[in-house]
Computed example of a mutant assay.
Amino acid sequence: MQFDATFLDLVLRWAHVLVVIQWIGWLAVMKGTQGVWMPAVQVEGEGRATARAFLIKGRHGLKGMSLFALILGLAVFFVDMMGLKVYSIPEGGGLSGRGRFIMWGMMLGIALWALTWFWLLPALKKVRATLDGGDAPDGGLLARLGLGLRVGAILAITVLYVMLVGPHLGAFHYGHIGLAVVLGFVGERVLSFCGSFGPCARC
């Protein structure tokens, strides 16, 4: 009896989408409020304690959601590959437009995961250790963290476009990837503006 993976794929796919939204949501919140908590950690007082608590929650959110996103993403890929054969390449043919968008989304998603685990999480850990010692983080560490958040925001918005919008565009074209990257840069600038002058600055 052949295993029908359609229902399992549906459950895993929606679970993956929800977890990714939470992961990117934490990234967006930390980027959007950067103009508030980053100056706060450099000045001793109640603001530093509040910023420290926020960064601890943010680090846990990024770590947990990115890990679950990776596990669920690999599970979806395995089910699609072995059960539904979504990514199988017919003889003399190639991946469909939807399949190519999904593969690009997977590669960009893995890049975002690597950025989270090997850049953002270690930097946040160092910031917390410095604050726990009663000192203010040095400017270089905060600059690296800020750059990581900027790159992460660009990647996150690019991934969302490629994974959610791309598969519905029909034929694959590299121009769509270029547009996704442009939207990533624009979205990151919007988050930065919000964090400096908009509602997020008053959170």
Rank of each mutant, 00 (worst) to 15 (best):
K125D: 13
L55V: 02
Q42L: 05
V76R: 03
A129F: 05
Q34I: 00
G139V: 00
G133Q: 01
L124H: 08
T130K: 12
V159E: 06
L84T: 14
K57N: 01
S88H: 10
A111W: 10
M82A: 14
D135W: 02
A136M: 03
K85D: 13
V127S: 04
M106G: 12
G64M: 13
I157N: 10
L74D: 00
L55D: 03
G64V: 06
G93A: 15
L70P: 02
R150I: 00
V41R: 02
L84F: 05
G146M: 05
G35K: 10
E91N: 00
R144D: 05
L112C: 07
S66C: 01
R144M: 11
R128G: 00
L121S: 00
Q34R: 09
D132V: 10
R52P: 01
G133K: 00
T130S: 10
V127Y: 09
S66E: 01
L142C: 03
L72A: 15
F54A: 01
A40D: 14
D135Q: 11
R144I: 01
L70Q: 00
K57E: 08
F54I: 00
V159M: 07
G58D: 09
L124Q: 15
K125P: 00
L155Y: 09
D80M: 13
K63S: 10
G83Y: 04
K126D: 14
D138Q: 07
A129M: 10
L84A: 06
I56G: 00
L141C: 05
R48A: 02
A123F: 12
I89A: 09
W113D: 01
W113N: 04
L74C: 03
L112E: 04
G152H: 07
A143C: 06
W37E: 10
I102S: 07
T158F: 10
A111V: 15
K126C: 04
M65T: 14
G45A: 11
G139A: 15
A143Q: 13
Q42H: 09
G148A: 00
L147W: 14
E46Y: 09
G45L: 07
D132E: 15
L108A: 12
A40T: 11
F54D: 03
V127R: 04
S66G: 10
K57D: 10
D138W: 02
D138K: 03
V36A: 15
R48Y: 12
L142R: 06
G45Q: 04
I157D: 06
A51H: 08
F68D: 06
F68A: 15
L115C: 11
D135H: 06
T50W: 04
L84Y: 07
